[in-house]
Simulated assay, not measured.
Amino acid sequence: MNLFEITIAILIVGILAYSLIYTLVVGRQHKVAEGDFDSPIADHVQKNVYIKNPIFLAYGIFFALLLFIILFIALTFF
C-alpha cells in the first residue's frame, strides 16, 4: 500500500468510527416514549433536520465511500 491508500484508509476508518459513536450517543439521548405519544424531538435536531439525523449521515457516508471506491478503482486500473 502506498501513502495515498493508507491515508484514505485511515480517513475512512475515522469517519466510520465517528459516525458509529455519534449514532450511539444520539440514540441514547432519546428516551423511550411513554404511552401513545412520541417523545419531543431535540431542539438541535429540529434546527438541522438533515445534518443531525443519523440515518442521513449514514447514507451520506455510504455514498462518499462509494465515490472513493469508484475513484480508487478508476485510478488504479485505468
Rank of each mutant, 00 (worst) to 15 (best):
D38Y: 12
V32D: 11
K47T: 08
I8H: 00
F72C: 06
G14D: 02
F63L: 11
F62M: 13
L3W: 11
D43F: 10
F78A: 09
K31D: 10
A9F: 05
I55P: 00
G35C: 03
K47A: 14
G14C: 06
D38G: 09
I55Y: 11
R28E: 05
I10T: 12
Y18H: 06
I15D: 03
A64V: 14
D36R: 09
F56P: 02
L66I: 05
N48V: 04
L57H: 10
H30L: 09
Q46L: 11
I61K: 04
D43L: 10
I61N: 06
F62D: 03
F77C: 06
I73W: 06
L71I: 11
N53H: 14
A9L: 14
I55S: 06
F56G: 03
M1E: 07
L24I: 13
G60K: 04
L11N: 07
L57Q: 14
S19Y: 05
I73Y: 01
L24Q: 05
A33L: 01
F62T: 11
N48H: 15
V26K: 08
L66G: 11
L66R: 02
L57C: 08
I12P: 00
F63H: 05
G60F: 06
A74N: 09
G35F: 06
A64D: 03
A58E: 03
A33R: 03
D38C: 06
A58L: 12
M1C: 08
L66C: 08
F77R: 07
L3S: 14
I51Y: 15
F78C: 05
F63G: 02
S19C: 07
I73R: 06
I61G: 01
E34R: 08
I61D: 04
P54H: 01
A17N: 02
A64Y: 10
S39M: 13
G60H: 01
I15A: 15
Q46H: 05
Y59V: 14
F68Y: 09
D36N: 13
V32M: 12
L16G: 01
P40M: 07
L75Q: 13
M1R: 09
L20F: 11
G14K: 02
I70N: 01
A58K: 06
L24V: 12
F78T: 07
L16F: 08
L3M: 12
F78Q: 05
L24R: 07
V45N: 02
F4I: 11
Y22L: 08
F63Q: 02
Y59L: 13
V13H: 00
V32A: 11
V13K: 02
L16I: 05
Q29H: 09
E5H: 05
L66A: 15
F77W: 13
L67V: 13
D38E: 14
G60S: 15
A17Y: 04
Y22W: 11
G60D: 04
F68C: 13
F68P: 00
V25C: 01
A42W: 05
Y59P: 00
N53L: 07
L75H: 12
I73G: 01
P40V: 09
I15R: 00
Q29M: 13
D38L: 10
G35W: 03
L16T: 04
Y18P: 00
K52N: 15
L24D: 01
H30I: 10
D36Y: 04
A9S: 13
